[in-house]
Each structure stands twice: as C-alpha cells, then as structure tokens.
Computed example of a mutant assay.
Amino acid sequence: MTALDTEATFAQLVEPLRGELTAHCYRMMGSVHDAEDLVQETYLRAWRAFHGFEQRSSVRTWMYRIATNTCLTALEGRSRRPMPTGLGQPASDPNGALDNRPEVGWLEPLPDAVVWGKPTDDPADQVVSRESVRLAFVAALQHLTPLQRAVLILRDVLAWPAAQVAEALDVSVAAANSALQRARAHVETMVPEEDQLVDDHARELLDGYVAAFEHYDVDRIVELLTADATWEMPPYAGWYEGASAIGTLIRNNCPAQRAGDMRLVATAANGQPAFGMYMRDLDGVHRAFQLQVVSLRDGQVSHVAAFFDVSLFDAFGLPREFPADHS
C-alpha cells in the first residue's frame, strides 16, 4: 500500500468520527475551542500510530482512547471551567452591582452544528445523544477530577465495560470503579430535571420568549419563567434565582429601553434551544450582545445561561451585526 493509499484509508476510517470526538473532548474540557484543538491533536497522534494499529479493537474505540488521554494530558495543571452557579456562593441580589470576572476560564456552550452538522428528525439516528452534552451535565463534569471525568464519560456515556476503561486509562479496575462511584454521586446532585424534547408547545413557548425580549416586555419574560428559574451570565460571577429576581435584574441592568432594542436569532447549543441576542447601539445598528442557552421544564423556561463572550458568535456561525434578512 502506498503512502497515499494509507492516508486515504486513514481518512476514510476516522473522518466520520470527528463530530462525536469533538463532543467527547468538549465534555472533558468544557470548551469548544479546546475540544477542536484536541481533536486535531488526536488525529495527529492517531496518524503517527496508524502503522501499528492492529485492529485488536475497533477504530472508534482506538480513537476514543487516544482522545481521552490527549485530553487528560491537556488538563494537567489546568483549572476547571465553572459556571457561576458552580462557584459555591449563594444567589446574588438583583439590585446589587455586577461582579465581572473576565480572568476566569468559564465553561463555553457547544454549537450543535459542530457535533451533528445539521438537525435530524430522529434522535435514534444520532451517535451523540443530546442529553450527553446538556449544559448542566457538562457543568457538573467540571467539578470532577480529570480521572473521574474520564471514567464517568467512558462508562456512563459511551457504555464501556470497567476493564476496558481501566486499560485505556492505565489504572486498576478497582481504581476505575472507585472513581466512577464518586463521580456518579457528585453529578447526580448537580443535574436538574429538564425537558429533553422541543415539541410544538415548546416552540410556541420559545416564540413567546423571543417576542417578549424583542418587545422589551419584562413582565412577560417573568411570566414565561418557572418560579424557581435560575439565570447566570459569564463572565459575571453572580447568579440569580426566582422569576421575580430575574425580572429585577433585567430591569436594572439591561441596556434596552424600548421595543426593538433587542433582536434574537435562533440557534442551538448543547442539544438545547439557544439565541444570539443583538442590542441596538447608539448608531442604530444591532450588534452582538450575548448568547443565551435556554433550558425548559414543564412548559416554562427554567434556566438561562447568557454568555457575554461575543467571540462565541463566530463559533456559532452568527454575524457580529444583526443580519438584514432577519429584519
């Protein structure tokens, strides 16, 4: 086999795995940018080792093993990527000052298009389940040690047997099982109940949510939230609990003053509804302001993560200025 044939065979085997490996590295790292870089590193390592791959395991298993260890190496000496709710502090006063912490490496949302390419009508056709990349689940993973994170993902997301996990991570089966037990106990306390499917009723709710913002109708926004809804917005360290408190937060801090100041463009992140929000500037142009990832429960909005890092608009393929064809 020539070098070109080998390269073509390698690409044919591993290229279909890119989306799911990106999801895997994202769960480990909490950053879509880091995940894409580490998938590239995984492919480089796999290519260098391809001549010695004897197919004792499937290509998928082999690639996941390389990806996991690539992530573990990258995590050495790194801090976890939190969300504000994971900092261990109580809910903030919506009448208080905002605490901006740009120096923190915050958790990032994952564009659905990076994993699935395009929406699919049948969840059974998806190699990566939407539940496995939910923002709350990935946020919970960030509280685990790197080893616990890897073991939980390999066992509970990918359904690998304990012996296979132990071999991949070069630990004993007992150590892998112990890490899994501790990881499960921690994650179970941190992941809230959410509606998993976006049906016609949920779409109607989301349409109303968009309309409430675009009309700057704070009372209506509050009505659409669950009584115990939470709102957080990296890089601000505070988080807010309760529909009324969230309404107060918006009234006190949102730059919008009237209907039309905010425009929202629908997208999807972490298998959830998401919106790029644009705020009207002094020159009348609507510019990228925040990216919201929305969780639903029992027909209302239960959680909003509003990310103020406008570079995320690039990752989601959203323009920095409100597109004219949405006017």
Rank of each mutant, 00 (worst) to 15 (best):
194 E>I: 09
36 E>N: 07
46 A>W: 01
33 H>Y: 13
77 G>I: 07
4 L>E: 09
239 W>C: 03
216 Y>D: 06
322 F>V: 04
168 A>H: 05
202 A>D: 15
100 N>T: 02
21 L>G: 03
307 F>H: 14
315 A>I: 00
219 D>I: 08
215 H>Q: 15
89 Q>N: 04
324 A>P: 00
134 R>E: 11
199 D>A: 14
165 V>M: 09
22 T>D: 03
265 V>R: 09
229 A>T: 10
220 R>I: 02
134 R>K: 10
285 V>R: 14
223 E>Y: 07
311 S>G: 05
220 R>D: 12
130 R>V: 06
45 R>L: 13
125 D>L: 13
106 W>N: 01
21 L>I: 07
22 T>P: 00
95 N>Q: 11
84 P>N: 06
313 F>L: 10
124 A>N: 11
110 L>Q: 05
206 L>W: 05
250 I>R: 07
316 F>W: 08
233 M>Y: 02
9 T>A: 14
191 V>S: 12
118 K>Q: 13
178 S>E: 13
321 E>G: 01
248 T>P: 05
64 Y>W: 14
264 L>T: 01
281 D>I: 00
60 R>S: 13
286 H>K: 03
17 L>W: 03
296 L>E: 05
79 S>V: 01
32 V>T: 05
126 Q>G: 07
215 H>L: 13
145 T>V: 06
312 L>R: 14
172 S>E: 07
163 A>N: 12
3 A>S: 10
16 P>I: 05
311 S>F: 11
248 T>K: 08
218 V>Y: 04
236 Y>V: 00
173 V>M: 09
266 A>Q: 13
5 D>V: 10
278 Y>G: 02
275 F>M: 04
59 V>T: 15
216 Y>S: 04
322 F>C: 06
26 Y>L: 04
7 E>L: 14
196 Q>K: 10
145 T>H: 06
159 A>C: 12
304 V>S: 01
201 H>S: 15
288 A>T: 02
19 G>C: 06
291 L>R: 00
19 G>Y: 02
169 L>G: 08
60 R>C: 08
324 A>S: 15
203 R>Q: 15
244 S>W: 11
188 E>P: 00
300 Q>S: 07
298 D>H: 10
318 L>W: 01
277 M>S: 15
68 T>E: 10
98 L>T: 01
100 N>E: 13
318 L>E: 01
310 V>L: 03
151 V>A: 12
266 A>I: 01
320 R>T: 11
102 P>Y: 05
224 L>M: 11
4 L>K: 10
8 A>R: 14
264 L>I: 02
37 D>T: 08
41 E>L: 12
286 H>R: 09
291 L>T: 05
95 N>M: 02
98 L>Q: 05
